[in-house]
Design a protein around this nucleic acid. Structure first.
Lengths: 218, 218
DNA sequence: GTTGCGCATTGATCGCAATCAATGAACAGC
DNA sequence: GCTGTTCATTGATTGCGATCAATGCGCAAC
């Protein structure tokens, strides 16, 4: 994942990658409480992470797609702190954390890269707090779709047409809304002509206007 | 901050600490957009961090007290991503980040410790998502107070009586509520006999019940 | 002591999203 | 094909927290 490595370094970073692991749709990559050993880089597929509180409340904390790193939450305590589940048949690279630690002590570029990835995760979480703390339902939905659009685009997929891999309920959990509110919000954005929804398929017609819909009174 | 270092290592970690810096109440330690150079360890005082979106919405993302580390959000992009402001006259230790990177390549314990601190920040943020996404107003308030209580206690202060350093509005921003709702919630918890509020002073009478108030229908 | 300002509390009303409820569509298994 | 289940949509109603508004309190400046 890092760039700017010498051939030698690249070779050593390659040795970091342990086995590959396939996860069938609906199955967990790891569960809260399990001992933390490894990080996971998604090769193909789609995941959600969710935390479950003592009183049983579930909160989806994120959706992860190819190229993204999972498991960072386990470093602090030595145990995974959330569940990670595949939303479609997926494959990950297993990255033993102690090997990563060792190697990042020897290769600056790897160390810097790893620190940046962790920091970006913190920034991403802060953006979600902003979303949950200040945005209205339709704004949250617009922000969510724009975010997905950008991430698909940066992977070479269409920014304006894609399939949602998660249910309305999972979207709702992530956005702090009920599934009915998600459904209504999507219908509303469709009525406004910003996009078309057909089950899991989304076609964005006016990406600029959708971005504007993230702000109040639009 | 890490434990289990040899005398030699301890000495070298000491050299990490650059200047100390005093921040008067209300003044920024850093602002969003500023170039990231250093992390900051709080020696004394109290801070808030907040992000401000393009459309002007403010979201308090956390309150930090003595012993906690600030600035991790800047590593990813090289620029600070939020504002950090002192809520009372405070003093921090400046930790130049490139020095920390170098040294953590040489001292495993330091590296591990740093990774744990970052990971815990991610876990903390996920807990806030849970709070904002699933809890009702009074539950959020109870969770907030219990969290403060625990952090004061772990620093040797009273777990049951303390002064809030932030305004109702700042609490509201953090919890995704309006200041009136915060005020009403505190009055309600007082009416229920769980605590006493007098302006910024909080006396918790029934910490156990307050913890229960974090869960639904109590 | 008085004035002024920021902060907090409390009341009345409104509006958005949750809840309750029913129907319909998609999909997997038999 | 049919059946059962899960997921999505839509309508009716409720309720929590936001908003609007007024009052009160604490504290610093003079």
């Amino acid at each position: 994942m890092p760039v700017g490595l010498s051939d030698d370094e690249l070779e050593r970073v390659d040795t970091l990658i342990g086995a590959r692991r396939k996860i069938a749709r609906g199955m967990p990559l790891y569960l809260s409480g399990e001992a933390f050993q490894s990080l996971y880089a998604i090769r193909t597929g789609f995941f959600k992470t969710e935390v479950i509180s003592e009183d049983g409340r579930e909160q989806v904390t994120g959706f992860q797609m190819a190229g993204e790193l999972m498991g960072l939450d386990g470093i602090g305590t030595g145990n995974h702190n959330c569940d990670a589940r595949a939303l479609e048949d997926s494959e990950v690279c297993v990255i033993p954390f102690n090997r990563l630690s060792e190697l990042s002590r020897e290769i600056d570029t790897l160390q810097h890269h790893f620190h940046k990835v962790m920091s970006r995760e913190i920034v991403r979480d802060q953006a979600v707090m902003m979303l949950l703390g200040t945005m209205r339902a339709e704004e949250r939905l617009a922000a969510f779709l724009v975010n997905l659009s950008q991430r698909f685009a940066s992977r070479g997929y269409s920014a304006t047409e894609f399939n949602l891999r998660m249910t309305r309920e999972e979207i709702g959990s992530y956005l702090g809304l009920k599934l009915e509110t998600v459904s209504r919000g999507l219908s509303r954005l469709q009525d406004e002509g910003l996009l078309s929804v057909s089950n899991k398929n989304i076609r964005i017609h006016k990406l600029d206007d959708l971005k504007k819909a993230m702000s109040p009174r639009c």
